[in-house]
């Protein structure tokens, strides 16, 4: 192991090491980041949710976008699988249906980067209990 010779060396090293625990840092305050939840129940996986999740993770890394990708259970829209819920900081969550690999890239391009909506949005048709 080469010894650290200066403060600048240390900072450079820290920069490189950050990625190792990035996954954990992000989960500390997910609300300040873009959150993507991929529904991964049996129905989701069968229609390709795993590949979709992979695409999101890879694209975010490639484009250097600060986002947390997690999987969640069935959202109930089994007819529209795979479904993905995207929450941008300060905005209401939006759920997209029929998301395949191609559409995942489009969601990133249009909604996440440019704030334009993409077709296939599932309208909010429920109220969560804590809001009442």
């Amino acid at each position: 192991m080469e010894k650290i010779k200066s403060l600048a060396d240390l900072k450079k090293m820290q920069e490189n090491l950050r990625a190792k625990i990035e996954l954990r840092e992000k989960s500390n305050d997910p609300d300040t980041r873009i959150q993507v939840k991929v529904a991964m129940a049996t129905c989701g996986i069968a229609s390709g949710a795993k590949e979709v999740m992979e695409t999101f993770i890879e694209e975010f890394t490639k484009r250097n976008i600060d986002a947390v990708v997690t999987q969640t259970g069935c959202m109930g829209y089994c007819y529209a699988e795979p479904t993905v819920e995207v929450t941008k900081p300060g905005a209401e969550p939006i759920t997209f249906g029929y998301v395949d690999v191609k559409k995942a890239s489009r969601i990133i391009d249009k909604y996440i980067i440019n704030n334009e909506l993409v077709d296939g949005i599932i309208p909010v048709n429920y109220q969560s209990i804590d809001k009442n």
């Binding site: 403060l7 240390l10 090293m13 090491l17 190792k20 625990i21």
Partner: peptide, 13 residues
């Protein structure tokens, strides 16, 4: 390395 990634030894430096 995990300690360094979380600002470890930065204060010392």
């Amino acid at each position: 390395e995990e300690y360094i990634a979380r600002d470890g030894y930065l204060a010392l430096g």
